[in-house]
Design a protein around this nucleic acid. Structure first.
Lengths: 386, 386
DNA sequence: TTGTACGCGTTATCAG
DNA sequence: CTGATAACGCGTACAA
């Protein structure tokens, strides 16, 4: 771990020259520059970030604040942020709230104030007013990945439109009794994303003239197990009352719905269609129709915007960026609505766009041996940009 | 963002006294200490980590090096490390290799040398000799979470024993044709964990006098989709040849196996038993029998050991810590082996410990309507410590 | 083009 | 118990 002085000594120049050469500043002859670079490299010299940070006021690091890390969306977004950062020479400091606990306070009032970071990415979470104030007090660029947060720019899909599209997909297949499997509220305070998505559901239902009552929504809390239970209760109803379609606010909840359907002995999509939001890594293998979003890309985009703000390549630093794209990915969990009136199960004149590619993918390992109803293992999903 | 001078001025003392008071050093009268603390707090003063780091040589931050973040094991371990760190006042710098790419080089030869961290946690990954050398050159405490790595301490379960236990569970249920669904090799170089787990499989098979041939192992690459395809091929074989049990090296691979079974029209566990390793968050909802490990706890433990080494509370800094515990969690994906000789499907005199709690959980939404073969939705899993 | 010298914000040493 | 003051390692006006 040589210091800049040692490099300077070995190169026979001053520390100022070494610094200039290493940072690519002008005012160094090509010759000395190359020489210094070579020597520094040979010595394995890397400037201490503490010293450099003290001198310049820039830490070349940005913070990422997350509610928890081990969930698909957050982990993916972190990955995206990291990729962009790393390629630009920035480090990433992770601040996880770990679900709950008192470290929440510590994070906001200690860790983040230590001047280790130049900017902050906040991953989709609810913040108290007090916390929001703490963020602004940092006087650092902040950007949110996920739903809208008061005074902050955010990069995210149009959540309302996404769920509207999902719902319309089912409506287009002839479904009329559709239930929204909603999430939200997990990490403390109420947050806008679940509300937006629920609104999207109501938008589509309303536009189609379909009724939306209290029974039209069940709570899955963004978790597969809770969703499975919730959907199981719904499916236990009279077949003529029970929904033929479920719009889950996330893929993980949709998985729970699929498993509940399986345990209830219902076929997907013949008896029940399920659509999610995310395109989770397991969606493909489950054959789940979903609205795809790309949290890695979102993370990258957020990092890019933040770095732009940081490096003064400012376009408009306060302009809200356009929503990230989302797209309908049709797999095997959605199909034409079963006939409503008759108890029987004839084929219905579903819209042409129904696109039942195969039977289902969520598994049927309790199906009677030999009932190989799951043919199209490798069917390509059909994608339809938003 | 006041500086220490401003606090000192306001308190009417020197910066030295402020520093002492804030860091809890002796040599400050209780009175002034309280006074300084109150003022600093009121002013929202937090020492700059750059300056403090420069002065002390300690950064109060540790690095976490991961192959990728958006996988269950890694994300969970990161969460664990973060929890422990945060509670001790340390920050966490994340270095993700992002799968591959040239930033791998940058991470090892730039980022990690910037003196931002005091120690390093390496999450289960293969390292080249050159990279290993780079780590040692850091002259900082290093600990690995996951499989064994040359000169480093590591915290992990006994992978070999874990898969041995898994295999023995199936053998105990009367299975004889068992296939190992292996992982490994994903992130560059060969790594010890997949090898250890494969060895555990052979251990158990050998001890039971069961044959292990080339066909006894298929490659799932730690991924659900690849595993699904691989298992699908295996299950396509003659029913009298095909395996009755699958030991997957991870739960994600086991999920793939379950889905393959479903698509092949096989019942689980009547026709095929599947066991995994991990106790992934979806294992419960899938009803997957598995060998549980707790990566969050592993991360916490690694962080604890590292901090101990850092703070000189050294027990034995080189001693390899005891393996993390693992335990068999019996759910609904494993049951007595089907009769081998007869084509029929009678009940077999499986061991009493078989514990088929319910039918299966991996879903059967292609099952004929009404065939509600999935009763015990809320059955508690049986846990059996290793 | 290059070198000198000061400042960045804290901590630690050494007098008082 | 407290206060000056010298590091800590680097970046950068300013001078040469």
């Amino acid at each position: 771990m040589p210091s800049i002085d040692e490099v300077a000594a070995r190169a026979g120049v001053s520390t100022a020259t070494v610094s200039r050469a290493l940072r690519g500043r002008s005012g160094v002859s090509p010759h000395t520059r190359d020489r210094v670079l070579a020597i520094a490299d040979a010595m394995g010299y890397v400037a201490s970030s503490s010293a450099a940070g003290l001198a310049t006021g820039r830490n070349m690091a940005i913070g990422v604040l997350v509610p928890v890390v081990h969930r698909w969306f957050f982990a993916s977004a972190i990955e995206g942020v990291d990729r962009q950062l790393r390629s630009r020479g920035y480090d990433l400091d992770l601040y996880s709230l770990g679900g709950a606990g008192t470290n929440r306070d510590r994070v906001f009032h200690r860790s983040m104030l230590r001047k280790r970071i130049d900017a902050l990415v906040v991953l989709c979470m609810a913040l108290t007013d007090e916390e929001l104030a703490a963020l602004h007090a940092l006087e650092q660029p902040v950007i949110v990945v996920g739903g809208p947060v008061d005074g902050c720019r955010h990069v995210s899909i149009d959540d309302r439109a996404a769920v509207r599209d999902a719902t319309e997909h089912l409506i287009g297949l002839g479904h009329q009794r559709i239930v929204h499997l909603a999430g939200g509220g997990s990490f403390g305070i109420d947050f806008s994303v679940p509300r937006l998505r629920a609104a999207g559901f109501r938008d589509a239902m309303g536009a189609a003239g379909l009724p939306v009552g209290a029974a039209s929504t069940v709570f899955g809390d963004y978790a597969a197990d809770r969703s499975k239970d919730a959907v199981a209760r719904v499916l236990a109803a009279d077949p003529r009352q029970r929904p033929t379609g479920i719009v889950a606010s996330s893929d993980e909840m949709a998985f729970g719905a699929l498993l509940a359907a399986a345990e209830a002995g219902l076929r997907v999509p013949e008896d029940l269609s399920v659509i999610g939001v995310d395109d989770h890594e397991f969606a493909e293998v489950f054959g789940l129709t979903t609205i795809r979003q790309d949290p890695i890309a979102a993370g990258e985009r957020a990092a890019t915007l933040l770095l732009a703000a940081l490096e003064g390549d400012e376009g408009d630093l306060t302009a809200q960026p356009a929503p990230e794209p989302h797209e309908l990915v049709i797999r095997r969990s959605t199909g034409p609505a079963p006939l409503l009136a008759a108890a029987g199960r004839g084929s219905r004149s579903g819209r042409a766009s129904a696109g039942r590619v195969g039977a289902t993918g969520a598994g049927a390992h309790a199906a009677p041996s030999g009932s190989r109803s799951l043919g199209a293992g490798t069917a390509r999903p059909r994608v339809q940009p938003a």
